[in-house]
Design a protein around this nucleic acid. Structure first.
Length: 421
DNA sequence: TCTGGGGTCCTAGGACCC
DNA sequence: TCTGGGGTCCTAGGACCC
């Protein structure tokens, strides 16, 4: 939502919502939209009338824009802190250990400067929580977000401060406490973060997921249990990669679904090569609507252990197609499909057998490198598998969905550059 | 009836996160 | 009619190894 406001300042002060893929659900909301009672994850069609009544600005999601804006923010953060862990598209942990010695002012002032600079350089408003542990930093960040008088920064520097903060936050808003745990905590009479911080290790182990729960409680008490995992050169490297989509409309025909799964596989293969990995485990899944009259199971999946870890699009698409053959059944209305790669390892690590090594695989790697280079230079999809090319006259693949209100790729597409004046 | 001790790898499932 | 798309970590159990 903030990204859209940067390029459309007239949205300032107005209720704005961003929709998920296929214009399905609300996934980002301005403060004004939240005030109208619009909740995260609501299906769009259920709140359509409310949105119209209150003249809420509605946008399809524009991941190219959000990803690029995120990259800019993260790059700046990596310049000001000794180590940065990119936690998600819109969150990062900064390691401030030892930084105070080099500062003229306090960490509080430092945080305010960083925040002001992020805003000045990218237009993105942020909040900062500073504390001895990740869990407390998240909690502090939440307080900063909820209390405008704090000016976007909350620094838990003293024991009194920490205790006060724990009293302010409901237990369901603590990082790591989800739906299931909240019920158990309420049943035990624990309703605030302070209550949680005071519970015994035995209780935490028993009811909050063993070691995870024990760590959570310790972190609330101010003892770090989670180190920072620095994101090297400002990028996120993942242990598993996935691409899945809900189709624009239910699909029944095998060729349509193979087309979708091939496209998804191509995308994940690109991600795989970008982070320099190869996968040796692939899961393909196929889902049906869980909202209609049909009974479960709603989803089926096939797991393939690949003979050799690979990141080659053509090989992976072949495997995906084989997996899909085992899953697809005629007469079913499929609404979603996806591909997941696990068991990632640095590309080229696996010892190839005498027969697999050599000129053939060398050539294939080169081909993928060329493909990535061309797509990087001339734009996504410039070079792709022939099977992904649409028949002439067809603008959209059958699986592609709605994106009725997509804004331009202001920062990543030359044709979409904002014109001023 | 008794029948070790130490590992690894894989899978499924459950909880959580943004 | 229309209901998102990514991830993480942990645990338990089974197969298999020496």
């Amino acid at each position: 939502m903030s990204c859209e406001r940067v390029f459309q300042p007239r949205l300032e002060g107005r209720p704005v919502v961003i929709l998920s893929n296929n214009d399905g659900c609300l996934i980002s909301r301005s403060a004004e939209a939240k005030a109208l009672g619009l909740q995260m994850g609501y299906p769009y069609f259920q709140v359509k009338l409310l949105l119209e009544q209150h003249k809420v600005a509605v946008f399809s999601s524009n991941y190219a824009l959000y990803g690029d804006m995120s990259r800019r923010v993260m790059w700046y953060l990596s310049q000001v802190a000794p180590a940065v862990e990119i936690y998600s598209v819109d969150e990062a942990f900064l390691d401030l250990h030892g930084l105070e010695r080099f500062l003229v002012d306090s960490l509080d002032t430092f945080a305010r400067t960083v925040r002001a600079n992020v805003l000045a350089r990218t237009g993105i408003p942020t909040c900062v929580g500073v504390a001895p542990t990740k869990t407390l930093a998240k909690l502090a960040n939440r307080l900063a977000k909820k209390s405008p008088e704090m000016g976007g920064v909350c620094y838990l520097d003293t024991e009194e401060c920490r205790r006060w903060a724990l009293e302010q936050v409901a237990v369901e808003d603590v990082w790591g406490i989800g739906r299931q745990y909240v019920q158990k905590l309420y049943a035990a009479g624990i309703t605030t973060a302070a209550g949680l911080a005071a519970c015994s290790e035995a209780f935490a182990r028993k009811h909050l997921g063993r070691v995870v729960g024990a760590r959570l409680v310790r972190e609330l008490q101010g003892f770090p249990c989670q180190g920072l995992a620095p994101s090297e050169d400002g990028t996120l490297s993942r242990r598993s990669l996935c691409c899945s989509r809900t189709f624009g409309k239910p699909l029944t025909e095998f060729p349509d679904i193979v087309g979708a799964v091939s496209a998804f596989t191509s995308r994940v293969a690109e991600k795989l090569r970008r982070q320099g990995d190869a996968a040796h485990l692939m899961t393909v899944f196929l889902s049906k609507s869980r909202y209609g009259l049909e009974p479960p199971p709603y989803s089926c999946s096939a797991v393939l252990t690949l003979p050799v870890a690979t990141n080659n699009t053509m090989e992976l698409v072949r495997f995906a197609r084989a997996a899909l053959k085992r899953l697809w059944q005629p007469g079913h209305r499929y609404t979603k499909a996806g591909v997941i790669f696990d068991g990632l390892e640095p590309a080229g690590q696996t010892q190839l057998t005498l027969f697999e090594a050599g000129p053939v695989s060398e050539k294939r790697n080169k081909l993928m490198a060329e493909l990535d280079a061309l797509n990087h230079r001339f734009g996504k999809g410039t070079v792709k598998l022939a099977s992904l090319i649409l028949p002439s006259g067809q603008l959209q693949a059958p699986w592609e969905g709605q994106a009725q209100w997509r804004t331009p790729q202001y920062t990543t597409r030359l044709e979409d550059l904002l014109m001023v004046g």
